[in-house]
């Protein structure tokens, strides 16, 4: 092999190696910054005290409570919508709905926040509230759930549906007993990703749920809800170092939540791979 070709080969892979380094290094730096900055306040206090007492309990509870709302609202609408698009939609309607759902995915999140603020907080008179935030977040992740649900259902072999129809099963039985079970892991991992996105979002919540140092209440409207990304954002701008540590700690906590969600998603996907293999046999 000529020396030039060999050199070019080495040169190419060196560049690729540098690129890989450029992916990993900033990411590790981000993680280091967050954990290093939060070291002074890491401890059980974060879980047992509220934000006005150097803890994050209310923000963690609020985030989980918001995620639950998204799970219910975006989950039901998104999965139902995905089922319709994959199984029942006439060609034309399916294409139109799919197209607009994709367009919705491209909406800047601050615009969602603005419209949610004007419509729900002001005009509907809910004030900064749980429901306004859940709706804004749900709109944000809805297209995601629709897409993953549809893809998961389309991966179920048509032969299964045909076989079931051939045995005389009704449409409803086919959907519930034949098509949904093998697609369920795929659908669930899509929902998990949607929850992961919701965990890290702030722009749609900034003007819809407000914040409070108290624990989140169960009220749907007129009660502000604390959440982690708000703590990061607000405390980051305060001059007090203790507040800045808490900001980083809230960042670390949302990263931890993210890792948990990703791992759950991976577990489910691994099971879905097994299920698909079983179907193929």
């Amino acid at each position: 092999m000529g020396i030039w070709r060999r050199l070019r080969n080495v040169g190419f892979w060196t560049l690729c190696g540098l690129a890989a380094l450029a992916i990993a290094a900033p990411a590790l730096w981000v993680l280091y910054t967050v954990f290093h900055q939060s070291l002074p306040v890491i401890g059980w206090r974060l879980l047992t005290h509220n934000t006005n007492a150097g803890g994050l309990k209310n923000a963690i509870l609020g985030t989980l409570w918001l995620l639950f709302g998204v799970l219910v609202l975006a989950g039901i609408v998104g999965v139902g919508s995905g089922i319709y698009l994959a199984e029942f939609a006439p060609r034309g309607i399916g294409q139109v709905a799919r197209f607009f759902s994709d367009v919705l995915a491209g909406m800047p999140s601050i615009v969602l926040g603005y419209v949610a603020y004007i419509t729900l907080v002001v005009q509907a008179g809910w004030g900064y509230s749980y429901l306004a935030g859940v709706i804004a977040l749900s709109v944000l992740v809805l297209p995601y759930i629709v897409k993953t649900t549809e893809v998961a259902l389309r991966q179920v072999p048509t032969a299964l549906r045909e076989g079931a129809a051939g045995l005389g099963m009704t449409e409803r039985i086919i959907l519930w007993k034949i098509v949904l079970p093998p697609a369920l892991p795929g659908i669930m991992s899509g929902v998990i990703v949607a929850l992961a996105i919701s965990t890290g979002e702030l722009a749609p919540l900034l003007f819809t749920v407000g914040f409070t140092d108290n624990n989140p209440s169960l009220a749907l409207t007129h009660q502000q809800v604390p959440y982690l990304t708000s703590v990061i954002f607000t405390n980051l701008q305060l001059p007090d170092p203790q507040a800045q540590y808490l900001s980083a700690a809230a960042g670390a906590m949302s990263l931890l939540l993210l890792v948990i969600l990703i791992l759950i998603g991976r577990l489910i996907t691994a099971r879905s791979v097994k299920a698909t293999r079983r179907m193929a046999l």
């Binding site: 990411a27 900055q37 965990t199 990304t229 990061i232 980083a248 960042g251 990263l255 993210l258 990703i262």
Partner: peptide
């Protein structure tokens, strides 16, 4: 998945 506010931080 890292929240954008964390990148801001």
């Amino acid at each position: 998945g890292i929240p954008s506010v964390v990148f801001g931080l």
